[in-house]
Structures are given as C-alpha cells and as structure tokens.
Amino acid sequence: MAVASTNARPSVASRFLGVIADITSRPSGAIGLALVTFHLFLAIFGPWLAPYDYKAVDANLMMQAPSGAHWFGTDHLGRDTFSRTLLGGREAILVTGIATPIAVLWGGFVGIFFGLVGGRLDDVLMRVVDAFLSLPWILKMLVLIVTFGTGIEVLIPTLAFFYGIPVIRIARAATHDVVARDFIQAARARGHGRMTIIQRELLPNVRDALLVEGAMRWSWMLLAFSSLSFLGFGVSPPTPDWGLMIADARGFMSFAPWGVLAPVIGLSSLIIGINLTADALAKALGIDRAQKAPV
C-alpha cells in the first residue's frame, strides 16, 4: 500500500502525491494516467493544435483517404477528420467532467444517509433504488431528454441524476462496513456527537471508495454521453463529437473506415485510460482486496 510505504501523513497534499506516485509505479496505472492526461490536454488545447477548421466544408475533399495533408482523411462533407477527432472529446469531457462530481456527491450523500439510518427505512428505500436500477438507463434518459430538450443544461443534470443512483449503493455498502467497526463504537462510547463521528471517523473511510467509484462512473458516463450523441440527442452539429462522428460516418464504413475508426480510437483510449487509472487508484488506496502481500 502506498499509504504504508510513505513514512508520514502530515498533509493531504503529500498523501495525494503518494497516491499519484503509487499509481504511476504500476505499468497499467502509468499508461492509464498518461492517456487521461493526454486527453485532458487535448480537450483544453485542442483548438490551438488542430491543423484545420473543424467546420470548414469543402466539396472537393469529400471522403479522402488518410494522407500527409489529412492524417485521418476527410468526412462526407470534406471536413478534416483529424481536427475533428482532436476536438471530438471536448464536449463529452466537459459535460461528464461536471456531471460526475455532482453524481458522486449527491449519490454519496444519500448513500451515507441510508447506511447510517439503517433498519426498515433503509430496506424500503433501497428496494426503490433497485427497482429504479432495473430499468434500462437509455429509456429513462430519453424520456427526460425528449421532455426537456438536449442542451448541456439538460444533459448535465440528467446524467448526474441517473449516475448518482448506483453511487448510492456503493456509499451505503461502504458506510455499513465502517459503521460496524469498533472505532465507531469507540467514538460513540467516548460520547462524540453524531456529526463529529460522521465527519472524523466515517467520511475519511468512505471517501476512498467514493473516489474510485467516481472514476468508474466517469467512464460509464462518457459512454452514455457518446451513445446519446450517436442517437442524435447529445451534441448538435456542426460541433465535433466522437459519438456523432461515428453516427455520421458509419454509413460509409465499407469504403471509408477511417471516418469511424478515428473517433472510436479517441473514445476508447480515453475510457481505457480512465478504467486503468481507476483500478490503479483502488490499489493505491488499498481498497482492492485481491492485491495483498503474499505473506
């Protein structure tokens, strides 16, 4: 465990650095973190790096194969696929980057509350959550989006709401685990107030589980967002977006496969990166139980 190898834990900053060092010490974690960093970099600086204007239509350049001028070829409107792929993650990362923390916060809050309350109320509420989770997510989302429209101001709350629900389960389970432990009993026996116990004893132990869960949720949310774009409910043209690009290019896949391949590589490399990082993060934080010293 990273925490065990660092000699002290005086500040949050040094623990953060320790965790980062631990993640990068594993090959999969280093690759994952590099991929995520790379994508964040592109999302921020993409407009300055893109060689062409992403919305420059040119009827003479339709469906060009990859070449020195157009690395990933061009699409059916003659737009440069490389530039569009470079920028295709911006919207997705922005929306999910805002929605994920909201999902983790509200799901975590409710989950911890359920976990603390326990008893019959917890049982009843969790069955409601289960029932809700059993519905296909795409159906639920489409209902909301069709009702309220497709702008960012609808997508962010919608994604945050739906992806917060599975977080409830995780937060509740983590809370149950911690509440049963003796250090909570010890704090109760000393006579600490409820809020103090939650803040000092419970939260630091639930936080790590939520952090890892958040990273996982982010990758799921990215997929969901891209799926919505693919179906035409996400980003509106001409804004470049991976999901939308795949939808546009899929009709020409048999003779212009690069049009699909480029956004697919963009999307999957980010999702793989996030998953690898989340795995390494879980190990670094000592949540992953399979990863124990052999002795």
Partner: peptide, 21 residues
C-alpha cells in the same frame, strides 16, 4: 460520566481508525 469509564477493544485494527494518524 463518559470520561470516567473507558473501553479498550480486542482488535486494534478494528478499534483505531485506519485513516487517522
């Protein structure tokens, strides 16, 4: 009254919060 009676548990792994120094 709480201060005067203190409890020590069987397993320190359980009774010490792993996230606190």
């Amino acid at each position: 009254q709480l201060r005067r009676v203190q409890l020590i548990f069987q397993n320190p792994d359980e009774s010490l919060n792993p996230r606190q120094t």
